[in-house]
Write a protein that binds this DNA or RNA. Sequence first.
DNA 1: GCCCAGGGGTAGT
DNA 2: ACTACCCATGGG
Length: 309
Amino acid sequence: MMKTERQESWKIQVPFHLDYCLNCGQVFRWKKLGNHWFGFIEGHLYRIEYEESSQTIRALRISGDTGRTGADSEGESRRRIERYFGLYDSLSAIRESILTNLREKGYNWFVGKFDDIFSKSLGLRILRQDVWEVAVSFLLSSQTNIPALERKLDALCRLFPQNEVRYEGESYYRFPKRESLATLCEEDFKRLGFGYRSAWLCEMVRRFRESDFRSIRTETYDRQLSFLLSFPGVGYKVAHCILLFGYSVMRAFPVDIWISRWIKEVFHVEGAPDRLTSWGQNVFGEYSGYAQEYIFNVYRNLGSDGGEI
DNA sequence: GCCCAGGGGTAGT
DNA sequence: ACTACCCATGGG
């Protein structure tokens, strides 16, 4: 492939925290070397860094998509990256929406506490990821901690050397398309250590149709949810991860073991994921997905003990 | 060995 | 609707 590297850097005017965005359990295949993050956006391998003091993003586009020719026009990487990292989301408006909803629902005692959580994770943004990769990633996330999930996805990607991009002695892999995974069988997945999730993945590969996943974007929330729940291995938690991270449905509220614990500790509310999802959407409002990610990042990643939040 | 992990499916109440 | 139990695997 012809090398078509291009560097762009620019100053942004909104809060942004690159590490939080890439290290909060919404995406699993970005790698950090020094201050640089390496990963794919729309099939292009990028090296990205963010300098907090000058609010500057520096992005090196290392390789173009396969089948594409020629270099991007000036500013194409910038638009692509700003979209991918959700820089068009107004965090101040999202914060106001959540705080207002908390007051309206009678949780005044929690308003200041949520504001603390929001400040601690400020700059975390919901990414605009590829739906197929999100769907496969979270299908495999069942009963799997994040490091183990990263290893699973890495092993899966390494089965397809045609997707490899080499840069400075390291190898990076584009996520395999459905057609590529369709050449594998359940036994192949089991050999990768996917266990009982292997059959689910086979079925998702078989039933996934690009057109279905595209047309569902414009459907109502209820129809989107029932469509995703129709896949074996996709329950409420995984479906809401796909809605939030793949479809940018900001009121999606995934309830995993951590969020479940946190709700119990802070609000003394318990229940199955579907019930706690409804609870979270009611308490946090139309941006409950953002609230969930900020809570997850503070509670799970930043190590604050739940009792102090 | 034991416990846990960004859960889901199923059978029994 | 709620609960109990099982499901494979890897890491601490």
